[in-house]
Design a protein around this nucleic acid. Structure first.
Length: 598
RNA sequence: GGGCGCGUAGCCUAGCCUGGAUAGGGCACCGGGUUCCUAACCCGGCGGUCGAGGGUUCAAAUCCCUCCGCGCCCGCCA
């Protein structure tokens, strides 16, 4: 019986040695044939998801063309000359491909050893010194989150987790807009005693409120009515405009930040249920108060592309930056001397650049032009660095159009979670009679939040999403609960067998079945999946991976007895432990709660 | 009008960056599976040629061009 080997600290990916061996072997086989194959070219050509014919495939077309050979012949020759390599069980040419099959026992050995030795850090890459800042969510503190806004938070939070796992020290930031008309509207209405509220606004709020409702709901209630009221009442509009002026000049009313904080607390509490929190909250107004916006304006004013308008406004001609024709004149200071959103955003980004090596902003597609403008203006003031943007598409409603608070089409996160918890509770009660009320609630909460979070993150950010209740509340198939269930199942097996703690000794030779081999292969792919998600910001790949792993684990579960098996029992327990570990790590990356039982 | 994104079976979706062997899943639907480690599960079946057309290439869902459809943006708003 082999004890779990202790892999070197530089070992992160069970496939790395095999890929190296294949590259070296192919180059050597080429040399034997008088061909000069470049290592990196060979490496780049390798198909790591080999398919039915093998684990890794080398398509020989390109190399054949360069050498003036027929692809099929080259593949045959390369396979024939391929040197015997440790870890590679077979090398065979099929058509223009050289197919490599890993030595299953060795792959099992190295994968399980790595997973079990690294535990919670399996999947992570080597630490890097370069730091990163991920700014996401940054919704105006004017009321509760609707699910459209939450897509930003889920993508951003998952990206931050993926980057951390890939070795990058990450700081997450929520940029709070406390400067604009929107936050002014909140302060405007709440600065008046209820009795002095305009009748239309009071009516809209009265009766809608529920006792003890969260601050974001409570303080945000009048917002749609205020918005409508201002359209019809110029004198009120004037009051709000004065308020905006006081905000932008850096002298907000005392209650202003307090109100924003109250609402924000409620908003952050909702995100907290999804496992989302922030390292830093950054207030937009701080950049006005600390003078950094003024310094930005000085630098912009010194630009040869600066345009001074008659009323004192300052604009920048950005026509040389490839922006759409209509947006080549960007105003950065109003006639009244105050700054604009984009100006403050420059100051904010300069501060980020001073603290972090990499700066990433998660933005809705409606901010696409703003992102490009920001890029251009950073160049304009001689800043060499740029943020990278993760742009995601909106969540729309089936009737068409984006979610709108004012149009009444918004689906509130809190409401969605409430529904999801209710449904999850029903599911738990239907299958578990042994749990007390608190346990039922805890599981229902985890299932509900897991379902919602997974449902949003599973789709590529650039794809639009149409919100449908029945999809968001699904606990089956490609869902968060499906992954949670597999994890709980694995946990339950270890618990029942008395295998809660390592070590998990195993003999790879006893794990030679089809389902074991398939499960090992999925397990071994995890580090690559994490690295891919971090590199490309395609965080949905982690959701896809988690589903694949849960799927294969369930097949294994049905096909292979573990606790009831004989000599293989201990080894099969090890593979279950490795699957549980990797499922758990994937759930952690997704911000979906692990459940030991459900 | 211009810019950006999207278009894969009845519905949802992966693959597109880095072109390569019969396009991978899920839902729905049909047929099976529980004296056995959790059936939120598993097995089998049905269904797509990847919006349309053209181009590049030995090879195109993937790269390029045109067109069509959908979404978003084009404020001294944020």
């Amino acid at each position: 019986m082999t004890a779990s080997a202790n892999p070197s600290s530089t070992s992160y990916d069970p496939w790395a040695p095999l890929v190296d061996a294949i590259v070296d072997g192919l180059v050597a086989a080429g040399t034997a044939e008088g061909l000069d194959l470049a290592k990196e070219t060979v490496r780049a050509a390798l198909n790591l998801d080999g398919g039915a014919e093998g684990d890794i495939a080398f398509p020989a077309h390109r190399a054949a063309q360069a050498a003036g050979r027929k692809p099929d012949d080259l593949a045959t020759v390369l396979a024939a000359h391929f040197p015997a390599s440790e870890g590679i069980a077979s090398t065979a040419a099929l058509g223009a491909y050289v197919n490599f099959r890993a030595d299953s026992a060795r792959l099992t050995e190295s994968t399980l050893s790595l997973v079990l030795a690294r535990g919670a850090s399996y999947g992570e890459g080597p630490r890097t010194a370069a730091s990163a800042c991920v700014e996401h969510t940054s919704a105006n503190p004017t009321g509760p989150f609707h699910i459209g806004r939450v897509r930003n938070a889920i993508i951003g939070d998952t990206l931050a987790r993926a980057l951390r796992a890939s070795g990058v020290p990450v700081t997450t930031q929520y940029y709070i807009d406390d400067m604009g008309r929107q936050s002014a509207m909140i302060t405007w209405i709440w600065s008046k005693p209820r009795a002095e509220w305009p009748e239309a606004i009071r009516q809209a709020v009265d009766g809608a409120e529920t006792p003890g409702e969260k601050a974001d709901r409570h303080r945000g209630r009048p917002y749609p009515a205020v918005s409508a009221y201002l359209k019809e009442h110029p004198e009120a509009r004037e009051e709000v405009a004065e308020l905006v002026q006081s905000l932008e000049s850096g002298h907000p009313p005392e209650r202003h930040r307090q109100l924003a904080e109250q609402i924000l607390d409620g908003m952050l509490a909702s995100l907290g249920r999804l496992g989302i929190s922030f390292d830093e909250l950054v207030w937009e107004s701080d950049f006005v108060r600390n003078g950094s916006v003024d310094r930005v304006l000085e630098r912009l004013g010194a630009s040869p592309h600066a345009i001074r308008e008659e009323n004192g406004a300052l604009a920048i001609d950005t026509s040389s930056y490839g922006l759409p024709k209509e947006s080549t004149r960007v105003v950065v200071r109003r006639g009244n001397g105050t700054s604009l959103y984009v100006t403050r955003d420059i100051a904010y980004h300069l501060e980020k650049f001073s603290r972090f090596d990499r700066v990433t902003d998660v933005l809705g597609q409606d901010h696409q032009l703003h992102a490009r403008t920001l890029d251009a203006l950073l160049a304009e003031i001689g800043e060499a660095r740029r943020p990278s943007f993760v742009i995601y598409q909106d969540i729309t409603v089936p009737e068409g159009g984006r979610m709108s608070t004012r149009g009444g089409s918004a689906v509130w996160l809190d409401h969605l979670l409430e529904e999801a918890v209710a449904r999850a509770r029903t599911e738990v009660l239907a299958r578990r009679e042994d749990l007390n009320e608190a346990e039922v609630e805890r599981i229902a909460e985890a299932v509900a939040t897991g379902a919602v979070r997974y449902h949003i993150v599973r789709v590529a950010p650039e794809k639009p999403v149409v919100f449908r209740w029945e999809d968001a509340l699904s606990f089956e198939g490609r869902s968060g609960p499906f992954v949670q269930y597999s994890y709980a199942r694995a946990s339950s097996m270890l618990r029942k067998g008395g295998f809660e703690r390592p070590p998990y000794p195993f003999d790879a030779k006893l794990l030679a079945g089809t389902e074991e081999a398939a499960l090992v292969r999925v397990l071994s792919r995890f580090p690559r999946a994490v690295a891919y998600a971090a590199r490309t910001a395609h965080v949905h790949a982690i959701a896809g991976y988690a589903h694949d792993l849960a799927d294969q684990f369930n097949r294994f579960y049905h096909a292979v007895p573990v606790l009831k098996s004989g000599t293989e029992r201990e080894s099969r327990v090890a593979i279950v432990a490795a699957a549980r570990q990797t499922l758990g790590n994937a759930l952690d990356l997704l911000g979906v709660a692990r459940l030991e039982t459900m």
